[in-house]
């Protein structure tokens, strides 16, 4: 089923998505460094954006002449693009199902390895005066957030953070009755920072990234829904150039190294 889906998408989206990616890929080498200039293309999930920028700097320092280029998007979009033939060297997914899609299509080279975890946290708008009638004060737990009249926003069950939210609620024995099920965790966060929603379920890393604009409330049973991030070298790396597979593996190793892990940890990710 998945394979056929991919094929159809190749037909339907190849022209739009694929061509854009191919163009981006084509222009990459010219911007690489003049000498042994190699450009490594990494497809990374949206939530990894900031951390991977930092990792790239470290990796480029350790490997002179190598430049890391990112394509940052939702994991499912990235998987679609890879299946449509995008010339990526490394894929870092925010969840296992999307990595599975890529593996099932045989687009990987070597086993995917978990490199980080992420858990959900409850966020509420930070700068609301306590006496504002619009906002239900005193939300300190998932139970509070699921109470009648509280505007809770979560991710839709179709996306990883939504699945995690469901698992979390089941574990806590509460039923979620959200006013909105967003397609991405960014949209959940947006509804909370703008004050439209009273509470939202987002990843710890997102809450950390939002800084002062939200209150993050740690959930007791957060560990009941741990999201694991896998990373893999892609089969397409071999087509990008003879040195690419080895370089891609070196990048994966760097992410898994102590140095890489400390970067991820600083951004709120857990160890695999």
């Amino acid at each position: 089923m998945r394979g056929r889906t991919g094929h159809h998408l190749g037909v339907a989206l190849g022209l739009i998505v694929g061509s854009g990616v191919v163009l981006a890929g084509c222009s990459a080498p010219s911007s690489g460094s003049a000498e042994s200039g190699t450009t490594l293309t990494v497809f990374a999930a949206a939530s990894l954006g900031d951390s991977f920028e930092e990792l790239a700097d470290g990796f480029e320092q350790e490997n002179p002449g190598v430049e890391v280029e990112y394509n940052i998007a939702g994991s499912s979009s990235l998987a679609e693009q890879i299946l449509a033939g995008a010339p990526a060297d490394v894929f870092a997914s925010a969840d296992e199902p999307n990595m599975h899609t890529v593996v099932a299509a045989g687009e990987n080279s070597g086993e995917p390895e978990p490199f980080a975890t992420n858990v959900l946290t409850l966020v509420t708008p930070a700068d609301i005066p306590a006496d504002t009638p619009a906002n239900t004060p005193g939300i300190t737990s998932l139970e509070d957030a699921t109470a009648e009249g509280v505007k809770l926003v979560v991710c839709a069950p179709q996306v990883p953070c939504g699945r995690a939210a469901l698992a979390l609620a089941e574990d806590a024995g509460v039923e979620l009755s959200p006013v909105s099920e967003e397609a991405s965790v960014t949209d959940v966060l947006g509804k909370v920072t703008s004050g439209e929603a009273d509470a939202g379920l987002v990843y710890v890393t997102d809450a950390l990234g939002a800084g002062e604009s939200v209150n993050a409330i740690e959930l007791e049973n957060a560990d009941s829904a741990v999201n694991t991030y896998p990373i893999t070298v892609l089969a397409a790396a071999a087509e990008n150039g003879s040195e690419h597979p080895e370089l891609a593996q070196r990048f994966v190793d760097y992410v898994l190294s102590e140095e890489g892990q400390s970067v991820l940890e600083a951004d709120g990710f857990g160890a695999p």
Binding site: T5, L9, E80, A156, Q158, S180, E181, A183, G190
Partner: peptide, 30 residues
């Protein structure tokens, strides 16, 4: 999606449904 949110039957219109469907069932999105 920015202003109204996305909830089945209340605010999730067809374009929002398409966008969401893409996550799990691209064929349904098509």
């Amino acid at each position: 999606i920015t202003f109204a949110g996305s909830l089945q039957g209340t605010t999730r219109t067809l374009p929002l449904q398409v966008y969401l469907e893409r996550e799990t069932d691209p064929e349904a999105a098509v």
